[in-house]
Amino acid sequence: MVLLAEDFHTMLEGVGVVGTGAMTSILISTLQAVGIKVVALWGPTDQEAKELARQYRIPFHTSKVDEVLLHQEVDLVWVTCPPHLHGEVASKALGIGKHVLCERPAGLKQADAVKMVTAARYYPSLVSIMTHGLRFLPAFVRTKRMIQEGEIGEVFLCDVKLSCGSLLTDKFNWMCDENMGGGLLNILGSHIIDIVSFLVGQKASKVRGMLKTFIKQNDRINGIRHITSDDFCTFQMELFRGACATITLNGHFPGQFKQEIMVIGSEGRLLIKDADLYGQTSSQTRETLLMADIQHVPERQKYSMAPTPELPLPYYKGLLKLTDALKESFERKKERLNWDGEPVAFAATFEDALYVQTVLDAIRKSDISGNWESVETLSEERNGRSFFLS
């Protein structure tokens, strides 16, 4: 049976978007291109919300978050606002009965992520996933399967190198401020922490990291304004089953993007260059192309691909795959709000987001102490006391 756009709207009435940044524009274009209605938009000011709503013909806009969450036609809330609002908005949306997709990271600290996890556990019938789209790209799916099937033996090392241009815009905003969630570690490092765990099936037990802000002012951000968000980051992770990971994020590669993720095992290695997969066994002297990135971006979606450093091409393609999977999960059910979990089985949950946030916190703690720091997940809070689970 072929489902038309109008059929889809009876299953998922509409999406409410919370945010107005560069990522929000790409997201709205992507949703509209596949026939998903965006019916409500929140912005930090009425003017920002009004301008973006007019540009994308969104019928309702507001500067009050609750008005989006309570909108009768909103069945799913996509949270793209600054990170310090993620936990509050996501957990409140679930409490109202809305499905939620949340941008990375889960917040500024573990407590934000714990709030999201608690809400997701309380409302298990609702979608509660993060937008870690790399999980849906064919090269990453195949890599995960090959590792699970033992094709490279026992994994003992993962090496990640990512180089890109500055994430900053021409205005001073939250991206410039480490205390508001800006910086390479939060914006792209959260994706890397998640994908390493997804691929090798191991989580970090302890970390050691270093963050640097080399460019504190530029020709657009100067005077009394100073940039405090990191533009370079390197960290190591010891994983629970003995493997190690080393990650370097470099924001001083203007106008370009390069990402390499290498997983080494006792019998070979796998290398993902952007979205192409290469492999090499221990007996081979050269790597072999196992899977080329041939994902075609439909014409209807190309106009949403305005260049943005925080969403490089592989990540954009992952977002497309995630959006398609989300649409399919609702298309499989005929009743409004119902969904099938199989198409989004690879998606990162709020539990995964809590793990990522825990690692982020430990890396920042290590940057200050100069020592290895344990990754301890805050499981719950009672009577003001925190309980930890290593």
Rank of each mutant, 00 (worst) to 15 (best):
L4W: 12
M11S: 15
L12S: 09
L12R: 14
G14L: 02
M23T: 15
L41F: 03
L41W: 05
T45S: 14
Q47A: 06
E48M: 10
E48C: 06
E51Q: 11
K64M: 15
K64H: 15
L70E: 15
H71E: 05
Q72V: 09
E73H: 15
V79A: 07
V79Q: 12
P83R: 05
P83F: 00
L85C: 12
H86L: 08
V89P: 00
A93R: 02
L94G: 02
G95H: 03
L101P: 00
L101V: 12
E103K: 15
E103Y: 13
P105E: 11
V117K: 05
A120L: 07
P124C: 06
L126E: 15
V127T: 13
V127E: 06
I129E: 14
H132F: 13
F136M: 05
P138R: 01
F140T: 04
K144G: 04
Q148D: 12
E151F: 04
E151Y: 07
E154V: 14
E154T: 14
C158P: 04
S163Y: 07
C164Q: 11
L167D: 04
D170Y: 09
N173M: 01
N173C: 03
E178K: 15
G182S: 07
G183S: 07
L188P: 10
L188E: 15
L188D: 15
G189P: 02
D194M: 10
L199P: 00
A204G: 08
A204K: 00
V207T: 02
I215P: 04
D219Q: 11
G223P: 02
H226D: 02
H226G: 02
I227H: 09
D230T: 06
C233S: 13
T234N: 04
G251T: 02
P254T: 03
K258M: 13
E260I: 12
M262V: 10
M262N: 06
V263M: 01
V263N: 01
V263S: 01
G265C: 04
E267A: 08
G268P: 08
R269G: 05
R269E: 11
K273A: 13
A275G: 12
L277P: 02
Q284D: 10
T285Y: 14
L289G: 03
P298C: 07
M305P: 02
A306R: 08
P312H: 00
L313R: 07
K317L: 08
L326A: 02
S329I: 14
E331K: 15
K333S: 08
E335W: 10
L337D: 07
N338G: 06
D340W: 01
E342H: 07
P343S: 03
V344N: 03
F346S: 10
L354G: 03
Y355P: 00
V359D: 00
L360T: 03
D367I: 00
I368Q: 12
G370W: 03
W372I: 03
T377K: 07
N383R: 09
G384V: 01
G384M: 04
F388W: 13
